[in-house]
Design a protein around this nucleic acid. Sequence first.
DNA 1: CTGTTAGCGCATTCAC
DNA 2: GTGAATGCGCTAACAG
Lengths: 295, 295
Amino acid sequence: MLSAAKELNYLKSGPASDLKKNRTKTIALLLSDLSGPFYSELIRGVQEIVLENGYDLIAVSSYADESSTAARFLREARTDGVILLAHNINTDFVLNSAREGFPIIALDREVIGNPNIISISVNNSRGAYEATEHLINSGCRSVAHISGPANSKDSQERLAGYKQALADFNTPSLYKWILNGKFTQEGGYEATKMLIHQGDLPEGIFYGNDEMAIGGLNALKEYEIRVPEDISIIGFDDIQLAPYLRPPLTTMRQPKYEIGKLASHVLFQLLAGESVSSHYTFDAELISRESVRLF
Amino acid sequence: MLSAAKELNYLKSGPASDLKKNRTKTIALLLSDLSGPFYSELIRGVQEIVLENGYDLIAVSSYADESSTAARFLREARTDGVILLAHNINTDFVLNSAREGFPIIALDREVIGNPNIISISVNNSRGAYEATEHLINSGCRSVAHISGPANSKDSQERLAGYKQALADFNTPSLYKWILNGKFTQEGGYEATKMLIHQGDLPEGIFYGNDEMAIGGLNALKEYEIRVPEDISIIGFDDIQLAPYLRPPLTTMRQPKYEIGKLASHVLFQLLAGESVSSHYTFDAELISRESVRLF
DNA sequence: CTGTTAGCGCATTCAC
DNA sequence: GTGAATGCGCTAACAG
């Protein structure tokens, strides 16, 4: 009777099944904006490991802050674990969502003291230091920095690395050469225009990420300032577009694929009850293309 | 007592809540590959409407066919509705997953006869016709076509439009000038190399999508065939990279943002019990850049 | 207005 | 082996 019903088009309810089994066999990747096209490498890394372990992967957006889908997935443990790359969810919220058996891997912040939260980050200050150093070593006697939002840890660290390099190489560190570009293309465009209007153009610009560098490139083109003949620029991230820009963008590559793989790998270790380090670090790598003038 | 527990760090279970309420307030966007970077416009459109309606959006991959996450979300109605853009899930499976009160919006196929499944598509054959026509009108006396997978409806229709244009404009239609590039960059590269090795190069190539055109551009560059001086090429989709290619790619733009908005809009109408058309169509639009030589 | 209770649809257990 | 009963953790309905 019941089996007959099953044969002819039985559709089970996922939620009911999850409730009973107390696990979803699903991992959520929490992103600040689903429509941002720059995570594909990371997603690929995560997806590989998640599928390999017989789990499903869903991507969730934290678009509207704490009322967002992502927040709900965190707070209500709608999956068996979570990989967090959503800087607009605040750390207290994350801490309050942590619970036994619900691993959280944070890729965009350092969370200490909670055994259910592991963080993985790239060495931003070091990467920024190298970017700035590269500009200086290739002949720039002055270097500006277009930074990201002040509340972003990535941005703060990159700014710190930049300043350290200026200090170490006796290069002028001027307030007017540090502008906020909000990590967006538009922001990079505006910040670069401001830099140009100030009159005293530096010989190099270190953009806190590639998106802002794209905006910068557009602003520079508008004013017929040639890259790299008149000014050298360097970005951070190595997004997919970087090699296609004119000129191809020199940048600091983040090993996104590797980070994605490690994040999910660690997640499954936690799910299996194994103990892991509370923090992992990767280095960024200089990808030299044509936006920095070499001597 | 219970309220005291709540105050100090109560974490509710999402699955249990969903079960009780019999709705998730979540819409799933089913994509064939989460790491594909070419959906951002569409996602943006969907996200806007979904959030506006107080719902959450999650993105799910159908990476591993019928055993995939996406398939599970369809089959088990894990969300209140679904937007489908996953050609690797077959239509019978979709039909068998349909149920009352679980709207499915199909963006990559035409599904007829089921009131719970609505399809939205672009007029592929017409777009392909226009692409081919554009090549012919700009002076190409011969036009090849690199197509997508044979089982893709999009690909079939684009091929049909191409053939129709050749017929209408008395342009030679040769079997050797229709090659399969699988809708991937690699496939487009290989197909283009084959075309080159055949010796008798056409004056224009219509690629079934932009990704294959990128591969084609690479192959052409390798053989020092100049675009558009030696050969004109046109793509389909207008992906984000298209204007950044060398030369900037002429292509048929799909109104992805608008499609995303309509898809979610229709979904909510269905959820509200309103009746809607069973099928909607958009037109592709010629975006003229520099990969077609103009006379 | 606060406290108790029934039942959502499954998977698992136990009785048969 | 097949079939009925229990309870997962909530929410909504209801009683006090």
